[in-house]
Design a protein around this nucleic acid. Structure first.
Length: 929
RNA sequence: GCGGACGUGGCGGAACGGUAGACGCAACGGACUUAAAAUCCGUUGGGCGUAAGCCCGUGAGGGUUCGAGUCCCUCCGUCCGCACCA
């Protein structure tokens, strides 16, 4: 068919380099990816997690943004007003590290990186609306964040708290938990200390219950992520019990110890009480007891690393304080300070029931306190049920428990709760325990009043404020039902320069005073030095000195900046109207675009970023910035890009670009391209700088083009799994690009009639069916983000068209030519979301004046998907033995008759009649002989 | 320890409870070429057989079903998350 002279001057090979730049210019000039807020079409908001401007994009970005772009282009073709923006998560430590190492200002470094990465992203041909670009380090962005901080403060969503933090003594800053690796600072390698510092805290725990419950509504989120968030929030129901203390034994006459338990049923198995080394009662007791003080000191110096926790013994110190059993005042329990009690969880105090808790059992076995089993497993004889080294933590029947005996675990829990809720203490004076908090210092996160921590420790029972508020400490119940959460409030203070300043002023007289909204933004000073560690803002000569807005006296600015997770907790809403200079959002615009319909990013953000954003959106709702609870309706977490590793004999890692692979048969060997030195091929691992198994996207774009990189990223691996980047795979993608180019060329060369023929030959029909079937599959698979299957179907379609052309006569009939042309048009539009530049070029070759990027999605001709006859597999006793071809609409009886007439079936039946014939119309037939 | 996911050819992977291995990669054979590249045609789960065909095959073992990669139970392995959470 190519024997005729070319109809137009097409190069034999598609030149990606030239074509990609050209089409990117055209798209840009025509502004086709800008989205107006006034667009009346149904909205679709697709977003990929915005990058940190580290300097260069990596293959993970290529994969992430390619997936988002496929969705954006598909939805655009489907007639949606698509919002597809991009920005920069531009604050953070690396800029300061660069400042220290290279003497470059963080701002300069960041903006240079943004410029470089933007250029790289643009070379990928992403259909982004760059007019909405935001950088979180821009005062035009962070001034709104400061405003919202003040709004949240006014709404009671922010507090200042003295809390334990991870402190890096070398870098002199607070580290987030994830920046602490095996007890050491990730950058400095210094042993991390626990320090008490004032922190600004977002009260995310106020929303614990709501954040948990709403997970059920996120039906387009991966189950995995929902489960991780659920576990992170960590809800547990139990009982808050106020144990009376023998005041003769307490240092300051403390009369109560509050504990939280999920196992009130085991109360009669109690052998001891234990409080955290950080518990106020421990501190009070330590004042009078140097040995105890030394013990607490020792606990503080125990490592927080995994290994330290795993190997740490259960250790305790008897304070001499005695607690009274709630059901028997004559029964006293020793109160220990124990190293395994966390101040962060519950009330920082427990009662220990060794028989039914492994930790408690280990503890008593060490200190010789014994144990009494109180829950007997079903089917076990209570008389012979003893606990020695292994606690029984399951349910069963109550024993050794007085009035609980014989009850089930659940009944006993209920009975204990019911009784203690209706038992009233006489004292009610817990001031001695609470004095610490009243002084505004180490407010332990205790389950005192529901009003203090309304959802972290919310009362399940009707509130009985009456009894609590009786002046002089009247009676109140000994226990109340409580819900406890593992989720902690979000400390956002960082002792860093390159972050959003916290808009607060500290005044000797007035305390903490918000910066007046009219004075926002509080901008970062440019003249800072990084010659020593610590926070440059704090040692800046003038910046922090300011007049108090309230009294006019001398005051100082808050020099801590916000955790960068704050910046990324609302950028997706800012994209809806980044031009609004007056306010963070334009509510009706934000409400119209939100929620994000499809959010795509790495699984590593499953908890922190996604949970913070869910909280922040609710806080923005509460403060009137948007009317929405859940920011992300659909979430997709893509897998990593992984690659083989290469290592020289001397053990040095070598980059893929420096290696030449040769294969003889199935055996592959590698050698350094430069010297020929043999290189060992190592396991496939996540691309990382340390293993040097990275591939630079720029190199791939240069040698193959963006479309090849995009196509390969979508091929083979399901998008939520890791994809192995390999040279062979890229070359395969590259070959396919050229193949499509030739195929479309051949189709373009066919003389096709303009009018649709009224009849199609079998040959023409086959072509049409192949195209429409691919169309149906690709549409469905893009919508479900199953890009690897889209790729397979596009291959199948291209293969079918090539075969059809190969089998056709040299002078194709008009109906066949028309069908080919139609198939070509469909095919180009099908692969356009994945390979937009090639698609534009092919679209032009097919003679269209329009841009394929603005074309609508082709429509399936449903009649082409159904066959008039259908071939069913025929099984005999469940094994496939034959095929039978019947009319599509053939009924069961008709099919059965056809099947029984088959030779194979007759032979198998050997004259007998079948026991059973299962006919599943349009699926399968099974003959049971 | 707790929770979750996964296990299919040489490799990445397809497969509403219904023909296991789509599609790609790699490999092998052939065509074209002085040659190479590119391209095109073909073969490719294992075993038996000249062939028609038959048998075995989705980590292991059991079960449900006319029929199981898919559902249930037990076990093994790999990966991920959380972890002294009261």
């Amino acid at each position: 068919m190519t024997s005729e002279p070319q109809k137009n001057q097409r190069p034999e090979r598609y030149n990606a380099r030239e074509a990609e730049a050209r089409w990117q210019r055209v798209w840009d000039e025509r502004g086709i990816f800008a989205t107006a807020n006034s667009d009346p079409r149904p909205k679709y908001y697709v977003l990929e997690m915005f990058p940190y401007p580290s300097g260069r994009i990596h293959m993970g970005h290529v994969r992430n943004y390619t997936m988002g772009d496929v969705v954006a282009r598909y939805k655009r073709a489907m007639g949606h007003a698509v919002l597809h923006p991009m920005g920069w998560d531009a604050f953070g430590m690396p800029a300061e590290n660069a400042a220290m190492a290279q003497k470059v200002h963080p701002k300069t470094w960041t903006y240079e990186n943004i410029a470089a990465m933007k250029k790289q992203l643009q070379s990928m041909g992403l259909s982004l609306d760059w007019a909405r670009e935001v950088a979180t380090c821009d005062p035009a962005y962070y001034k709104h964040q400061q405003k919202m901080f003040l709004d949240f403060l006014a709404a009671g969503l922010v507090k200042r708290e003295y809390r334990k933090v991870n402190w890096d003594p070398v870098d002199q800053t607070v580290l987030a938990n994830e920046q602490v690796i095996d007890g050491r600072g990730w950058r400095s390698g210094a042993l991390v200390e626990q320090r008490d510092l004032y922190q600004w805290v977002f009260k995310i725990s106020d929303y614990a219950e709501e954040l948990l419950e709403a997970l059920d509504t996120l039906d387009r989120w991966p189950d995995k992520v929902r489960l991780m968030q659920k576990n992170w929030i960590g809800r547990s129901e139990g009982l808050l019990i106020r144990f009376a203390l023998d005041t003769a034994t307490t240092p300051n006459g403390e009369s109560e110890l509050e504990i939280f338990t999920t196992r009130p049923d085991t109360l009669f198995g109690a052998k001891f009480m234990a409080v955290s080394p950080d518990h106020p009662l421990a501190a009070a007791a330590a004042k009078e007891n140097p040995e105890l003080a030394a013990f607490i000191e020792q606990c503080h110096h125990m490592g927080t690393s995994q290994a330290a926790i795993d190997t740490a013994d259960k250790m305790g110190f008897d304070t001499g304080i005695r607690a009274l059993h709630p059901f028997d005042a004559s029964w006293t329990l020793p109160v220990y300070v124990a190293n395994f009690i966390l101040m962060d969880y519950g009330t920082g105090a427990i009662f220990g029931c060794p028989a039914h808790d492994q930790r408690d059992l280990d503890f008593v076995n060490k200190y010789g306190l014994g144990n009494t089993p109180v829950v007997c497993p079903e089917g076990q004889d209570p008389a012979s049920f003893v606990i020695t080294a292994e606690a029984y933590e399951g349910d069963g029947r109550m024993i050794n428990s007085r009035f609980l005996d014989g009850m089930t675990t659940a009944e006993a829990k209920e009975e204990v709760a019911r009784r203690l809720e209706n038992t009233f203490s006489v004292s009610g004076d817990t001031d001695s325990i609470r004095h610490h908090e009243a002084a505004g210092v180490a407010g332990p996160r205790r389950a005192t009043a529901p009003a203090d921590h309304p959802s972290r420790l919310a009362s399940l029972a009707p509130q009985d404020d009456g009894s609590r508020n009786v002046p002089g400490g009247g009676s109140r119940p000994i226990a109340q039902r409580q819900v406890n959460y593992r989720l902690r409030d979000w400390g956002i203070s960082r002792q860093r320069y390159w972050g959003c300043p916290i808009p607060i002023i500290h005044c000797e007289k007035c305390g903490t005073v918000p910066v007046p909204a009219s004075e926002l933004p509080v901008t970062l000073p440019d003249d800072v030095s990084f010659d020593k560690p610590g926070n440059p803002l704090d040692r800046h000569p003038t910046w922090k000195h300011i007049r108090c807005p309230a009294c006019g006296g001398e005051a100082r600015r808050e020099t801590d900046t916000m955790d960068t997770f704050v910046d990324s907790s609302w950028y997706f809403i800012r994209f809806t109207d980044p031009w609004n200079e007056k306010a963070p959002t334009t509510p009706h615009v934000a409400n119209a675009w939100m929620p994000v319909d499809q959010y795509i990013g790495g699984i590593e953000h499953a908890i922190l970023h996604l949970l913070y954003s869910r909280f922040f959106t609710r806080a923005m709702k509460k403060t009137g910035h948007v009317d929405l609870d859940e920011p992300f309706a659909g979430l997709f977490t893509q897998g990593m890009v992984v690659h083989e590793t290469y290592r020289t004999k001397s053990g040095e890692w070598v980059m893929p670009a420096e290696v030449t692979i040769t294969s003889e048969g199935d055996k592959r060997t590698a050698a350094l391209t430069a010297t020929g030195e043999d290189v060992e091929i190592g396991p496939i691992e996540k691309m990382s700088k340390s293993k040097r198994n990275t591939v630079d996207p720029d190199d791939i774009m240069d040698s193959y083009g963006a479309d090849v990189a995009r196509w390969f990223m979508l091929s083979d691996s399901p998008p939520d799994r890791d994809v192995i980047w390999s040279e062979e795979g890229v070359q395969g993608a590259s070959r396919f690009v050229q193949r499509l180019w030739r195929l479309i060329g051949e189709i373009a060369d066919v003389d096709a009639p303009a009018a649709r023929p009224s009849n199609f030959s079998e040959q023409a029909l086959a072509v049409r069916k192949a195209a429409h079937r691919a169309l149906a599959h690709v549409s469905e698979d893009i919508a479900k983000l199953r890009f690897n299957r889209c790729v397979a179907h596009i291959y199948e379609c291209a293969n079918a068209l090539s075969d059809a052309i190969g089998a056709a006569e040299s002078k194709p009939s008009p109906d066949f030519a028309w069908a080919l042309r139609e198939a070509g048009d469909i095919l180009v539009r099908l692969f356009h979301p994945m390979m937009p530049h090639l698609a534009e070029e092919c679209w032009a070759v097919l003679g269209h004046d329009s841009l394929v990027s603005t074309e609508s999605w082709p429509e399936v001709e449903e009649s082409l998907l159904v066959e008039s006859t259908i071939t069913l597999p025929v099984q005999i006793n469940g094994k496939k033995r034959a095929d039978v071809t019947v009319a599509r609409e053939a009924g069961k009886a008709e099919i059965e008759a056809a099947v029984l007439a088959l030779d194979t079936v007759q032979r198998a039946l050997d004259g007998k009649s079948p026991k059973k014939v299962i006919v599943v119309p349009q699926r399968i037939v099974n003959v049971v002989a």
